[in-house]
Design a protein around this nucleic acid. Structure first.
Lengths: 258, 258
DNA sequence: CGTGTGATTGACCAGCATCAAATAGAGTGG
DNA sequence: CCACTCTATTTGATGCTGGTCAATCACACG
């Protein structure tokens, strides 16, 4: 079971790596644990002493509001780092919540430090990857604040599409696993479950997507992107990579931001 | 005119610096330019060859949607870095918009590189400061997605209060400059100008704040925080610093997240 | 076949958007 | 110092989006 492949793909999305560098990364992921779905991989207030990397499954950054509602601020897909920051800084200010059962690599912070010292390309890859994470956060603000539930959900799907594609997890050409309940979708987009349901149904009915059974099919990516004004440039993917063909297929008028 | 003071204060919010290190930072800020309000300090698509630091004035990260509406994703206060990322990575995916006239330091990327190489404390300070920026972005997602305009605006004021305090820009004990129009406030919080106005008036009427004339007075910080569930821990400020006394004054029941 | 979770639907209403217009202020020039 | 202008604030009226509450349906699983 080569769980590490998505991680390599992820890093190569932002930086080319030599095979020696890839080997170095592989060496980091020796300690792998399974985290059960609906449990926290890391919880608010903790000071993890190692870095967690999602190798398989989906997780989310989650903040619980005073009134009990939950807001996701990011989805973590295979290859994503949960807390490359928190080890140095201070306590976690949010939870890392396993949406599905997850395979998680536990990497000692020292090993990361040593790897980055000896491998500049890896340092760049990690640095860039945090910058992309930042850009995604900004886009979520724009997206969730737009007040248009259809665009919000469609935009999220566009993002997940490219990110899943980047790590090689497409199922065929136009589909990928979407292991979210409607409640979780609502928690990410800042709407109620009821409204997420209705919006989703309308997107389905409009033929833009087919969501169901833990999968999403996007028959016409360009159409979906046009519908929500998705512009992939914020993901800062190398054009040579997996997403490239898709990135270039977007019609000019769809390139404006949300 | 010692424009660099807020920058030093900012860095010291996350990392203690020796006076030699402070001198090093001062040396970086030799090239200072004034940017007129309502113009972009950096625009989407640009690849700046130097790092911009706000020394005086307010700026904002801005994304313009397809439909013409504008969304701010961050406020940049004196001491904040605009684009420590974009120099290495790729093109800017958003604008840096000067809300007021701004004094901006233009620092050559190489000078930053050299400074961080020779000054580990500075590297840590910069790194931590980007992590705080990330945490703030997450909080804006939570805040702007909450669907409660009063909490959203109150929470923003709480954040700005601590950040202004951290860089030593309070006017007296309970007030600071708030050079935002209601339209800009609306662009940050994802609501219309009309609704921002009405919400602001209600906050004013409730005595939680007094906003007007480019200033905000917060007579009872704890009350304002309670009203919106503000929890300062995401700002990851050193307790020894300026904000410390305030941080510790929050009643336990107000420490839950929004 | 019962049980639990997730999806779906309906009825109702509140918050916020929208459109439009009036008012207040700040800055400018005569 | 006043008139003019531009910008920002304020207010009103109206309607829609999305929230709330509640019930039902579908389905997987033991």
């Amino acid at each position: 079971m080569n769980y590490v492949r998505p991680l390599i793909r992820k890093l190569e999305t932002v930086e080319r790596l030599t095979s020696a560098e890839v080997q170095h990364v592989l060496g980091l992921c020796r300690s792998i644990r399974t985290v059960a779905r609906r449990t926290n991989i890391v919880s608010e207030g903790e000071r993890p002493d190692h870095v967690h990397i999602i190798l398989d499954g989906w997780a989310a950054r989650a903040t619980v509001r005073k009134n009990g509602t939950r807001q996701f601020t990011a989805f973590l897909l295979p290859g994503d780092f949960c807390d490359i920051h928190a080890t140095t800084l201070s306590a976690m200010d949010h939870d890392i919540f396993a949406i599905t059962d997850c395979q998680v690599a536990y990497v000692d912070k020292r090993d990361i430090d040593e790897a980055t010292r000896s491998t500049p390309a890896l340092t760049r890859a990690l640095w860039r990857s945090t910058l992309v994470d930042e850009a995604i956060l900004r886009r979520w603000i724009v997206n969730n604040s737009s007040g248009d539930a259809h665009s919000t959900i469609a935009h999220l799907f566009c993002e997940l599409h490219l990110r899943m594609r980047a790590v090689g997890l497409m199922e065929g050409d136009d589909a990928f696993a979407l292991p979210l309940t409607q409640e979780e979708l609502a928690d990410a987009t800042g709407m109620t479950t009821v409204h997420a349901n209705r919006t989703l149904k309308r997107l389905n009915a409009g033929g833009l997507v087919q969501v169901g059974g833990g999968r999403i099919v996007i028959p016409d990516v360009a159409a979906l992107r046009r519908a929500c004004g998705f512009n992939p440039n914020y993901l800062h993917m190398l054009l040579e990579n997996a997403g490239a063909s898709l990135i270039q297929n977007v019609p000019a008028d769809a390139w404006q931001t949300v």
